[in-house]
Design a protein around this nucleic acid. Structure first.
Lengths: 155, 155
DNA sequence: TGACATTAGGTGTTATCACACCTATAATTC
DNA sequence: GAATTATAGGTGTGATAACACCTAATGTCA
């Protein structure tokens, strides 16, 4: 029998509701998986959010995407994408070019170095996910995805 | 049919593995729920982590807990609990007293104001969870908790 | 076409996080 | 019981996140 969250965080009282228990379990599980993910990325010099940006840009055309498009596609809310991209530009992972049609827009796209990095990371990332979630069966993973998707339906 | 994560973040390619899809869904769902939770707490002047500390301290004796105990019970890793507690002390939510047996230890406990706050928040928090997760059935919530607990079993 | 709103991007500033390192007290061990 | 190790807490510092606000370019419409 796996230790449940209450044992884990040394809580004595029962949870006050099933909704609360689900929320706290979600927080805990995400925190542990993300911590591990960030530690895996660290030696490669990028944060989880930066890796997310690299993947987003790899999936888009050679002109790249504008800041707001990137912001909207990020998994987590990030109010200061400008300086996130500043840092990535400084690290040589992305570069920016102001559009000539709409001079307000600045397209951000991968440099070859950025593309190399994200390509190289594919394998490590896949291995990380196998390590962390590979013990769940296909059916369990599918159910988990379904339930998480369903959980997001309430604004 | 609820929109899946790929629609949500404008991703064109399919996920590379079921494990990855589960991980990304977990990140996304947690981010949305936490954002909402933080927004709910904001008018009350505490962050999610601070609220977590308030609950931890409410569940412990009148002597409170030492810093490391609090750190270990937090849902998310937090390397700088000292200054987190500094801020809460400054806000009048907790107070600290150095132990006389072991002069290294400092017990942190709720002030009456801190206790009032966490008690008052019970209702709002319960309502928030109902709002956000109340559309899941009891069976779904239980399954979700089980799967999240299981997902945490791999170190 | 000129005023106004909207949109894209950026900046200033403060709070918070994160890491490495430091100090004081207690426990251990020779 | 002196030296050493372990433990509890704290500090210094740079990086990042968060919030409000600002500027420039484009759209809209009286």
């Amino acid at each position: 029998m796996p230790p449940d969250l209450r044992d884990d965080i040394g809580q004595r009282k029962p949870f006050t509701s099933l909704e609360q228990e689900a929320f706290l379990n979600l927080l805990r599980t995400q925190a542990e998986l993300s911590d591990s993910f960030e530690r895996m990325l660290r030696p490669h010099g990028v944060s989880g959010t930066q890796y997310n940006v690299l993947r987003i840009l790899r999936g888009s055309g050679p002109d790249g995407l504008c800041r707001n498009e990137i912001r909207d596609r990020l998994l987590t809310r990030m109010p200061d994408v400008t300086r996130l991209l500043d840092r990535m530009e400084e690290a040589g992972l992305v570069s920016r070019t102001r559009s000539s049609e709409d001079r307000r827009q600045v397209g951000t796209h991968l440099t070859s170095s950025g593309r190399d990095l994200v390509d190289r990371l594919d394998e490590v990332v896949a291995e990380e996910h196998r390590q962390r979630l590979g013990h769940l069966t296909e059916k369990q993973l599918k159910t988990l995805v379904e339930l998480l998707t369903h959980a997001r339906q309430r604004l």
